[in-house]
Amino acid sequence: MTRPEPVFEAPWHAQLFALTVHLNEAGRFDWPDWAARFAATLVRHGVNRDLNGGDDYFAAWLETLETLLAEKGWAEAAAVSQMRDAWEAAYLRTPHGDPVSLDA
């Protein structure tokens, strides 16, 4: 037997997957609507190059979710970008090994 492949290639793939599934299960959007939007993003991303099904697949997934959440008014693009920067700053200032927190 060969070693089983990891289920998710990167932690952020797993986080993104779980976030989307959770929002769906909480009734925030239905799955066919999600799939249609995601398929459209994949087509757009795949126009100029072949997607390999790894990082680029989840990049398309993330873009789809960000757009959907912005449309619903739950996470505006500006707020997401600001929060992203806050997390980046938190990661940079946190000593290696310590838990990362937004509270400086």
């Binding site: 952020w12 986080q15 993104l16 779980a18 976030l19 959770h22 929002l23 299960e25 909480a26 925030r28 993330l62 979710l65 960000e66 959440l69 739950w74 996470a75 707020a79 997401v80 970008s81 929060m83 992203r84 806050a86 997390w87 980046e88 990661y91 937004l102």
Partner: peptide
């Protein structure tokens, strides 16, 4: 970190439960 940002915002708004993730 973009995923992390979404999580934080949605958690603050009470739209998701981080434990469920």
């Amino acid at each position: 970190m973009r995923v992390k940002a979404l999580e934080t915002i949605l958690t603050e708004k009470g739209l998701i439960d981080p434990a469920a993730l």
